[in-house]
């Protein structure tokens, strides 16, 4: 069995966890202070995912902050960043508006601010 050390990123406490992995399966999680940490550890050793945040330029020139509405695979972050950097939108735009549908096949890229409203 292999043990891995992880820092939980789900909340500012940042619990230091130890995860036991055998044949690609999680056999134990130690050090988490809540169930969210356990879930994070289990996902992290199998397929790490992150919510990606960035900003895009609207056609009229204003910057609009954006995020993926669910975590995307960590390994695809730079691939998705390229798509984000080619994305634009029209104003007005509101918090939650989709600016790129299913950017990784699943997650939508949504605006995180209001501009021009």
């Amino acid at each position: 069995m292999e043990t891995k050390k992880l820092t939980c990123i789900e909340c500012p406490i940042g619990c230091e966890m130890e995860v036991g992995v055998e044949d690609g399966k999680v056999v134990f999680v130690k050090g988490n202070s809540c169930p969210r940490g356990k879930m994070y550890a289990e996902n992290e050793v199998v397929c790490p995912k992150r919510v990606l945040t960035s900003s895009i330029r609207a056609r009229s020139g204003e910057m609009v902050s954006v995020k993926t509405d669910q975590p995307i695979e960590k390994a695809k972050i730079f691939e998705i960043m390229e798509k984000i950097n080619r994305t634009t939108c029209d104003l007005p735009v509101k918090v939650g508006d989709i600016v790129y549908e299913k950017i990784d096949g699943k997650a939508n890229l949504i605006a995180t601010t209001n501009v021009g409203v």
Binding site: C11, P12, V51, T53, S54, S55, S65, V66, K67, V95, T112, T113, N114
Partner: peptide, 25 residues
């Protein structure tokens, strides 16, 4: 907050991870 476009804001207050601008709004 307008320039803090990353997420992780509001976990204590709103029980969800918001970006800076979302929290401000």
């Amino acid at each position: 907050l307008n320039q803090c476009i990353h997420n992780g804001f509001g976990l204590t207050r709103f029980k969800e991870s918001l970006t800076g601008p979302e929290y401000a709004w």
